[in-house]
């Protein structure tokens, strides 16, 4: 089948747009992480994410993040239309650097946790969660 010039242009534009969309989400997460760490190097490990392997309901996914010795933990849902989940700071009254909550995951994705330790260093961990029914109302 031959395409008219108009159709070819539309297909080409669509293809480029598709390429642009997927990296865009990754850069939102990268920017937020860079803003959190100030560009510092991030080591792996030191923070643990407990989340179900498969979440039946993307609207209510229980997760727990724990980073002994951390001052602040930032959690991101890398595949959500809006990735930031929460930022939690632990004060002197906290007995541990652990937080449990429930989050919305739009689709199967990595949950990312970056922790700022008391000595100023940063650590991160990711956990892949499969989602059967997405939870962002979309």
């Amino acid at each position: 089948m031959t395409y008219t010039r108009r159709e070819t242009l539309v297909i080409g534009a669509g293809g480029i747009a598709l390429l642009a969309v997927t990296p865009a989400m990754a850069s939102v997460v990268e920017e937020a992480v860079a803003a959190f760490t100030g560009g510092a190097e991030i080591a792996e490990g030191g923070v643990e994410i407990n989340a179900p392997e498969i979440a039946e309901n993307g609207n209510v996914v229980p997760i727990e993040v724990s980073a002994p010795g951390a001052e602040e933990i930032m959690v991101m849902a890398t595949g959500n239309p809006s990735p930031p989940v929460c930022n939690v700071s632990f004060g002197a009254g906290a007995a541990s650097q652990r937080l449990s909550t429930r989050i919305r995951l739009a689709r199967t994705q990595d949950v990312l946790a970056v922790a700022r330790m008391a000595d100023g260093s940063f650590v991160q961990a990711t956990r892949n969660v499969k989602v059967t029914i997405g939870g962002c109302g979309g």
Binding site: S89, F90, R104
Partner: peptide
């Protein structure tokens, strides 16, 4: 004395449940 200070974004589920020590 502060125990915990958490900033929440829309990705937190409705009826936010927050548990800590």
């Amino acid at each position: 004395t502060n125990v915990i200070d958490m900033a929440l974004d829309p990705a937190v589920s409705a009826n936010p449940y927050i548990e800590f020590d």
